[in-house]
Design a protein around this nucleic acid. Structure first.
Lengths: 336, 336
DNA sequence: GGAAATGATGTAATCATTTACACGCTTGTG
DNA sequence: CACAAGCGTGTAAATGATTACATCATTTCC
């Protein structure tokens, strides 16, 4: 069942059927109705590949993320998918994992699929060694790219992000301003956004005249950052004699690990120790006490990404970089 | 840059280029090498739409889920996407929400995209009123469908699921066998899987000779089931004089709501009240005490879905329904 | 040495659309 | 009344691959 069958049944040419299908104004109402009737009762569905060939697009956006099961990324996926869908674009998912090689092939695959645009989630797509970013420059030549929470200057690459440095700084300052003296900083990423957050932590100390103690910087490897890993690591630190009265984490799950530690070590939150997370995930409400966390405006970022993509695809001039301001959401794990 | 350009540059016909691209054995090594060289230094990428038109497939699977931000569904998405990708299939995502209409159009859209197969996540895709399932029967005519945790008898519809009834029964029996007398049952779904779980709860009571008290069946509406909603609802029940010494939930987040309630009501877990969740989500470890939960073998289910899909696409005969057995993972929220 | 088999390559049909262009008919205008 | 404009429609040329079939050269076998 193809457009030719329909045209025969309706007694018109295939061009006319095509016009009806594409809502062209150059069809008389009577003809349109007749063709529509035939289409409806034949159950005909236009062939998407032929259409794609003719129009050179199948209205598809590629969504790349390291791990779709991660709370933050899956939230972003949901936002993006919905917004793109409402604009009649479908999304192809590519969960590439963390290795450079996998990301590169992920991007290549989507390119060979002729997607109209790509969204790269998380600054881990940008390598610290600039030479490794060639795959992005390469891809950007044939397709517009938007980075979620990443920063990269290149033609046809757009960036939408949260000012993680400022948000982290405010979180740390809030801890200092509520009487905390020694803030343990838990982080898990050394890429763009990870560096910005760390810089925010440092800036806060500087602003409040507190000296940085390197002992308080606590890095966790991607595959060694479960709540239990964190708990155990902090217990270890305590044993070693490192003292702290607050924890600031670059991600909520790390903060929850810190809360686990507090329970194990018999410390009360926030009386003996304050805790602040990052991302303001849904499970900030799961814990007891509820977790103070940084809302980094994911919804707004996603909405703006979709806007930007649509603009670019329509050939409009769009801002290369848009920055949103995060916000510390105060809950029970920090003092007043 | 198309196949014709390549053929000219390499001094061969387009058929030969196509053969090289498709790893056909009917090409001499010398020619293959020459063509590959041209392809590599021209940066040529075959046009996916033309290819799709010729082969009548773009190796794409449609993944439908109500909400990609849900922990369970995003976990499934990640498993499925990875397994399909490793078999050279891309996944198109469609988060349809909960209304029948949205699901119907979601399925239609993917059908019109000519996906090779579709995976429908969650039994909420199956309506209790059978007439509303016509959209599934319709879609199954043109594309193989696999239901994750759903059950539906229809040609070209395959089902892969966990025996939720049995798993729930075992969870409830464990509660009864460890001294609990009155188990509050929290649930949020009345579709297939929801009914099975409830039946499991009932069966457990029957097996242990405990009479069912309807007061202990506690339903939560989809948009009124946050941890705080649950906590408040249980506080309310306590005020009304409903007594219980255990909570069995049809989903982990409901169980966490019950733990919130325990904290608010000053009850100790598991001494005063046991709690069991369902899905064995990653955040079962986040809570204090850690949450006993039912592992419903999502990974195995997803792997089997992908196997089944591949078999079907290769024209093999595949089992219509495969059932896995869940397992109660004992942690600290239940007694020994 | 000639028939047959094999192997590499090219020719051209096919896939199902979109769309530029052409054509004829009606209507409006000077 | 002639001519232009516009509208509805059809014809046919793209779009860029795959692949059945034909062709030609080479080897194999009797």
């Amino acid at each position: 069942m193809n457009i030719y069958d329909i045209s025969k049944r309706a007694g018109v040419s295939i061009a006319t059927v095509s016009r009806v299908l594409n809502d062209s104004p150059h069809v008389s109402p009577a003809t349109r109705q007749r063709v529509m009737a035939v289409i409806n009762d034949s159950g005909y569905v236009p062939n998407a590949f032929a259409r794609g060939l003719g129009l050179n697009t199948m209205k598809t956006i590629g969504l790349l993320c390291p791990d779709a099961s991660d709370t933050y990324q899956s939230q972003a996926l949901a936002y993006l998918e919905n917004a793109f869908r409402s604009r009649n674009y479908d999304c192809v998912l590519s969960c590439t994992g963390k290795t450079l090689e996998a990301r590169t092939t992920g991007v290549e695959q989507l390119k060979s699929r002729h997607v109209d645009g790509m969204v790269l989630m998380g600054s881990s797509f940008i390598e610290n060694n600039d030479k490794d970013n060639d795959y992005i420059r390469q891809a950007a030549k044939s397709v517009p790219l938007i980075l979620l929470n990443g920063s990269f200057a290149c033609e046809r690459v757009y960036c939408v992000l949260c000012d993680d440095q400022r948000a982290t700084m405010e979180a740390a300052q809030h801890l200092l301003d509520t009487g905390c003296k020694r803030i343990l900083y838990l982080y898990h990423s050394k890429n763009y956004s990870g560096r910005k957050k760390l810089a925010g932590y440092r800036a806060a100390l500087k602003n409040r005249g507190v000296e940085l103690d390197d002992e308080l910087l606590c890095y966790f490897d991607q595959d060694k950052m479960s709540v239990l890993d964190v708990r155990d690591h902090l217990l270890e630190m305590e044993k070693k004699g490192v003292s702290f009265d607050a924890v600031l984490a670059s991600e909520d799950s790390l903060a929850i690990g810190a809360m686990k530690y507090a329970r194990a070590a018999g410390k009360r939150i926030p009386e003996d120790m304050s805790v602040v997370g990052y991302n303001n995930s849904s499970f900030c409400l799961f814990t007891e006490p509820e977790l103070t966390s940084v809302d980094n405006k994911l919804k707004a970022i996603c909405d703006h990404i979709v806007e930007t993509m649509m603009g670019v695809l329509e050939g409009k001039e769009m801002p290369q970089k848009t920055v949103f301001t995060g916000e510390v959401v105060l809950r029970q794990s920090t003092r007043k």
